[in-house]
């Protein structure tokens, strides 16, 4: 049985008005326990709308969402339960910080869950550790932190609910290369330590190609492709066509293929590119 599943999920904004927009069109996805899923799509492809359905924030116009086989809209309590079990961290989450201290902000979720003080304390410290926020920072005001720190505090605010599935919408947007690496590393570590399911939403294959076990490509309110990273990169030209960025290295190999060289379609890291080109150069030497 799959962990999280959608069945013919459809969502229409402004249904019944002349301005209606189909944001999701008959989406069927399956996510297994422990998956590291990347949902890729350009702005407006429906990817953010999709994840807001997965934790029950938005109610589908049509279709169902199942968490461990149970419909999340079955009852009100089930729905609240889902919000805690499927943690969703929004884009630019630092703009939602509000408490007087970092500690209290991270504790907001667990407090809403009605946990005991000791349990909350344990979770806050654990979450802070996952995102690399040192103890002495917990008593600071979140508004005094740097941009990257704020982002990590905000992510901790979702992790502290200890969700079985952690969803992050564009977690690296607006960050510089170092900040981006930090966030991706902490997500990777979090997943390895907890074994929890993680879903990352992004418009760049760059961020996720190295980690994802499963990729869902969205385009025009529909699921365009699903598969492993390798499967997806077999269609790298198609990714560019639908407005997604692929790693620079992938572009190099797309162009080499266009020139007629027999190089692999599944190149997305510098190492892969290096091996592939070495093969090519040695091959041509041998042929001579």
């Amino acid at each position: 049985m799959s962990h999280l599943q959608t069945e013919n999920l459809t969502y229409i904004y402004g249904a019944g008005t002349p301005f209606k927009i189909t944001a999701l069109d008959n989406i069927n996805i399956n996510i297994e326990k422990g998956d590291f899923v990347a949902i890729i799509g350009h702005t407006g492809s429906g990817k953010s709308t999709l994840v807001q359905h997965l934790n029950g924030l938005l109610k589908p116009t049509d279709g169902k969402i199942f968490l461990d086989g149970e419909n999340i809209h079955q009852s009100k309590s089930k729905l609240f339960d889902t919000r805690y079990r499927v943690g969703l961290c929004f884009q630019y989450p630092e703009y939602q910080l509000f408490e007087s201290t970092v500690y209290k902000d991270i504790a907001f979720g667990p407090t809403n869950m009605g946990l005991s003080v000791t349990e909350i304390d344990e979770r806050v410290r654990k979450a802070a550790k996952y995102v690399g926020i040192p103890d002495e920072m917990l008593s600071k005001s979140p508004f005094d932190l740097s941009g990257g720190e704020k982002r990590r505090v905000a992510i901790a605010g979702v992790i502290s609910m200890e969700p079985e599935i952690l969803i992050l919408d564009e977690p690296t947007s607006g960050l510089d290369p170092m900040g981006r690496e930090q966030i991706l590393d902490l997500i990777k570590n979090y997943r390895e330590t907890t074994g929890n399911t993680v879903i990352i939403v992004s418009h760049s294959m760059d961020d996720v190609a190295r980690f994802a076990t499963k990729v869902i490509v969205m385009n025009d309110a529909k699921v365009d492709l699903t598969g492993t990273v390798d499967d997806i990169f077999e269609n790298s030209t198609h990714l560019q066509d639908i407005g997604l960025s692929v790693p620079q290295i992938t572009e190099v190999f797309i162009k080499l293929r266009e020139k007629g060289y027999p190089v692999s379609e599944k190149v997305y890291t510098v190492e892969q590119g290096y091996n592939e080109l070495k093969r090519l150069f040695e091959g041509s030497v041998n042929n001579d």
Binding site: L57, F80, L88, F90, Q96, N112
Partner: peptide, 13 residues
């Protein structure tokens, strides 16, 4: 709208 959704995701009611 966005902040409300984000806080709801953390159990705000």
């Amino acid at each position: 709208d966005k902040i409300m959704s984000a806080q709801k995701s953390r159990g705000a009611n």
